[in-house]
Design a protein around this nucleic acid. Sequence first.
DNA 1: CAACTCAAAGTTACCGATAACTACAACCCA
DNA 2: TGGGTTGTAGTTATCGGTAACTTTGAGTTG
Lengths: 353, 353
Amino acid sequence: MNSNDGNERQPGPRRGAPVRMKDIARDLGLSTVTISKVLRGHPDIGEETRRRVLKRMEDLHYQPNFAARALITGRTWTVGLVVPDLLHPFFAQVAKALSAAIRGQGYSLIITSSEEDPELEQQEIEQLLARRVDVMVIASAQWTVESFRSIEEQRIPYILIDRRFAGLPANFVGVDDEAVGMLATNHLIEQGCRHIAHIRGPETSTALGRLEGFRRALAAHGFSALPEHIAPIGTSGDDRGEPGGYEVTQKLLATNPRPDGIFCFNDPIALGAMRAILDAGLRIPEDIAVVGCGNVLYSDFLRVPLSSIDQDSSAIGRHAAELALTLIAAKGPVRPTTTLVSPRLVVRASSLR
Amino acid sequence: MNSNDGNERQPGPRRGAPVRMKDIARDLGLSTVTISKVLRGHPDIGEETRRRVLKRMEDLHYQPNFAARALITGRTWTVGLVVPDLLHPFFAQVAKALSAAIRGQGYSLIITSSEEDPELEQQEIEQLLARRVDVMVIASAQWTVESFRSIEEQRIPYILIDRRFAGLPANFVGVDDEAVGMLATNHLIEQGCRHIAHIRGPETSTALGRLEGFRRALAAHGFSALPEHIAPIGTSGDDRGEPGGYEVTQKLLATNPRPDGIFCFNDPIALGAMRAILDAGLRIPEDIAVVGCGNVLYSDFLRVPLSSIDQDSSAIGRHAAELALTLIAAKGPVRPTTTLVSPRLVVRASSLR
DNA sequence: CAACTCAAAGTTACCGATAACTACAACCCA
DNA sequence: TGGGTTGTAGTTATCGGTAACTTTGAGTTG
């Protein structure tokens, strides 16, 4: 008895072309709709038929065509992620966590990098809109809320992460930046620092929040910072990060009184600051204690291991994923949510005295 | 005179739905095909009509539907990237460069991470196949060539990066790992090291290539390594990277003669090695010189700045992108190509004596 | 002036799936 | 026995584009 005694025909696969429902249907003497129903677990299919179809799908290695499905359902099963820089460990970690969290649900992630360029970011967002991603997650490098309008017009849900915008009632997942500033500053105060400086970042919500936390922590202890002890980092690309931190710190060292503690907007800046301090013949932390933010470098292995505020970026990725899936499931508009992750201080040698 | 004196109707946009060709066609009294032709720069369209259509597209902010287009053309304008770990700066850099290189050509990048898990990688590849990406770029964590068969069946072009497989005639873009090993080893020899050890990586082409380079460089100088001076790093997830490097190096320090130079498979391992050396009360580089590979850490700021082999990961990303675009354009099968990027030695304190 | 050419648009079918409805047994019960 | 369920499967239209023809009318030509 032949194992293939049913009424299936056995036409070979179309040369090099992927298997379609139509092929399975033809082979089994059914209609494509029946195949479709089996695939989606639709109830009104007989047990016997279901088994035959599943078997044939298995045998032929059937993969549904996402484009066709997206066309009619309007869902692409795709999440768009826009970050300013993939190389930055913070965003890489967010991307990784986000990717892992949506993978299990059948979603794929389109990642684009804006290279900190608002114009490019705008283009990337348009591109993702054209692809009809189901939801977008954006760490924006914008100064205005312009581009978010076009997203809203298309009624595609989106989530801002890391940086947010005053007056834009959007979903947000990020770290509690005020807490970051307070955590770092309180720690420096506890370590006995009395002239604490802050190297602040650009005009973003993150930088402003950390500055605010810095001020509030000082105020809570009856201190305040000299104006010249709140130093802005250069805004021109190259001035950010380590070289910028070096330069700014040199100026800080010339102030009177000289700071005995510095809270830096991020770790690269802190590295620059430490280099400037050591180059000036001063000691860390004895003369000047340093705290960074990000905790993403191999901080333990630095010349002076760097104390830093951990932003728990994977939690941000996970929360963003969770919210994203909720927004997709909701379909209609949802009242925007704000989720703040609690920062954590990691004390190392650079601030321990 | 009204500015809208043509025969266009001005029906409002469909509530919340994206603009379609059909809408533009109706507004202008044309057929959708004409709109499609204008969009693709088809020649047989009158100048006047073309202008009207383009104007209307502009006004309505028209975005073509990728799913519909993909369905009929079979092209998704999407590139799939599979990496073992997004957080690893090497892969992040490759992703960044790849993304930048294809962006201008209208392609988007779907990035997935296999977390160094072969089974997960297999699933991710299936997922990308189902999405009919136009080309795949894979840094594989596989041991077998199994999963590549299914890609070939679907006739989707793919490019391996970083790690390759003996006997699999596939496109490959990576670093010349033998050159890596020789570069590092020659440098250590030049610095006067005579008992050079190597902490090797897992059974991948990268690790084997570097080991081979290590051996050949030694042989070229009439040296050879003691068997116990070629130490494999643990294969169980946690044993890799820094902790693994620490542990292995402790054993190396107990050998006789003790190595006076160590070439490490990658930078994290080198960090572990350096910690072990310093913990043992030895000096770097006076007692033992260390060279890593990757050059992706903030090597300048380490306790002892780490000499490392730079793999020029962004060049790998760029070359992969270029090849990817070529493969897409070719349509038919193309004879596989191998592109090797030349590594570069970056000398820092850890090996300079 | 009929035949031909060419530019500029339109028709029709189709890509591979799904939504919404319809068809048709078999079975049930009053 | 006839109307109403139930369980299974099929029909038809459609999503938003594109490929491959076809149509139309003005202009050209021998």
